[in-house]
Amino acid sequence: MKLVEINDLTVQYPGVKALDKLSFSINEGDFLGIIGPNGAGKSTLFSCMLGILTNYQGTIKFFGKDIKQSRNYLKQIGYVPQKPVFEKNFPATVKDVIRMAWTNPSDDSIIDQVLQQVWMHELGNRRIGELSGGQQQRVFIAKALVNKPKILILDEPVAGVDVQSSEIFYSILRELNKKEKITIIWSSHDMDAVNKLVNKVACLNRTLFFHGASNEFFENEDLVKQYSEASMQQHMHFHETH
């Protein structure tokens, strides 16, 4: 069953086309890795999918309905941004942060349940600003899970997070996809992790130059090399200019 259908999605910024006629679909239960160099349009794609950016051409359907018709689909989506921006001294415990997103407060045990799912049950009463970057990201996954979403969207969630925390993060994502049957859409630069975790890959560089099974992508050496070189050039450019 197709949960997401994107057809001819085009986003034009002044002087540059951020996305050019993107078309692909995502099935229920998929774990889709979206890869592409910096500036490839991954975050723009997510902004369109989440209804933040509405000035686009083409159509995006979630659960069979055009998202421009209704924002109700967002209730079934959990979103974890790249690096959530919040005031470091914000007076909120981990449980407070999860409660913020909770649209139907009835049974408080769901908070402990989602904290358990992200291996954070012992830190529920800690202040969010006191946690490490990796722990904070796990809290944001728990927050995204509290309304029992069908789809989880993650925009480079482990950027700047240490290797050990990233590994914990990946294990959690695997469990959510396999055990909880949550469809996951995840953008990442970490090719090894993408190779290990996902069943589908979408390769993006303003336009879609691959979409299909992960093994098809990783067995195609030319494609992997082409992507890795493009990514490396972007990486070098990033470090030269910062």
Partner: peptide, 18 residues
């Protein structure tokens, strides 16, 4: 209360939550 606290904490995420 919940909406005000959430949008104060992180406006973008609150917006995505509807």
């Amino acid at each position: 209360y919940r909406q005000l606290v959430y949008s104060t904490f992180n406006e973008e995420q609150a917006k995505v939550s509807g």
